[in-house]
């Protein structure tokens, strides 16, 4: 009976948290798929979302304010980052990686300066718990799950049925081809970055609410996103979702069943193995220079 309950806890927890991982990974993979660059500030964007919500709470703006802040500020930041720095460096993915890496350090260090290294609690979004077959889970997790999937669903509709969304798919497949049919890739890139920023912000809100907010919270997420995106395939939304569930389950299972000090190791090992054996992942394309 105990094992069943443990297994159930693991499965449900993994199922719910993976939705969030998927949201984060999708943003990351879109930027790579569309722009061909690795945005190493993606993790810091998550942190930004969490702290935006925290400050909104401090300023007395309540839950709605926190939600709004956690979405708007990172989205704005991402857009500015693209326009201000990345766009100029589009031909040099290496410089983009280095620049975004330094930007992430700036953000994290700014938080260290103003908030120190202690964890901060965010305004509680939802209280209470619910139970499935005897195992209890926080309502927050459930909300996280539902909201993430709603967003993923909306994104799916957006990408497949709206003009801009299809533009994103087009650019992600071929820059030249897309520009030949009149799609302006810089506009598409900007939209992609904003979307990715918004997703990261929401994820930051949830993660900060569920755990706590700290300056380094984005780092582990960034690494996790690498694994997910590589396994799922660069540029593939579907791949990110499936990859998120694979990695999510693997991670939760490892930390619960084997040892909690192995946190983060399993996704890393998977990442390296996939990179060596099948770099395109499940649904991705070969990275072509």
């Amino acid at each position: 009976m105990a094992t069943l309950s443990v297994a159930l806890t693991i499965i449900v927890q993994a199922a719910m948290i993976s939705a969030l991982y998927a949201l984060i990974a999708i943003g990351f993979t879109l930027i790579f798929g569309v722009g061909g660059v690795l945005n190493l500030a993606h993790g810091a964007t998550i942190t930004m979302g969490a702290f935006s919500a925290y400050y909104a709470g401090q300023l007395g703006l309540g839950i709605p304010g926190a939600i709004l802040a956690s979405v708007a500020i990172p989205a704005l930041f991402a857009g500015l980052l693209y326009l201000g720095m990345v766009k100029r460096l589009e031909e040099e993915p290496i410089m983009v990686m280095i620049t975004t890496l330094v930007v992430s350090v700036v953000i994290e260090q700014a938080i260290v300066v103003f908030e120190g290294t202690t964890n901060r609690s965010l305004p509680q979004l939802i209280e209470g718990q619910f139970s499935i077959a005897g195992a209890t889970f926080q309502n927050l997790l459930g909300v996280m799950f539902v909201v993430s999937w709603i967003i993923i669903g909306l994104l799916f509709l957006f990408v497949n049925y709206t003009k801009t969304g299809k533009g994103i798919l087009a650019v992600s497949m071929s820059h030249k081809g897309a520009s030949l049919v009149g799609i302006k890739s810089s506009r598409i890139n900007l939209i992609t970055w904003i979307i990715a920023g918004a997703f990261a912000g929401i994820a930051g809100l949830f993660l900060g609410s569920w755990l706590t907010a700290s300056f380094a919270m984005g780092q582990a997420q960034l690494v996790l996103s690498f694994s997910i995106v590589v396994v799922g395939g660069i540029g593939s939304i579907r791949g990110s979702v499936i990859g998120a569930y694979l990695i999510g389950f693997l991670e939760i299972a490892t930390t619960n069943l084997v040892s909690s000090s192995l946190q983060g190791l399993a996704p890393l090992v998977v990442l390296v193995v996939v990179l060596l054996v099948k770099p395109e992942g499940l649904f991705g394309r070969e990275f072509a220079e």
Binding site: V37, S261, G264, L265, L268, V272, P279, F287
Partner: peptide, 25 residues
């Protein structure tokens, strides 16, 4: 030799993280 560009950079990024995990473990 097998992976290129950003993929290789990912491998190099991840290697010390794995080492760190092993250290902690």
């Amino acid at each position: 030799l097998r992976v290129e560009g950003p993929y290789l950079s990912l491998v190099t990024l991840v290697a010390p993280l794995i080492l760190l995990q092993l250290f902690i473990f």
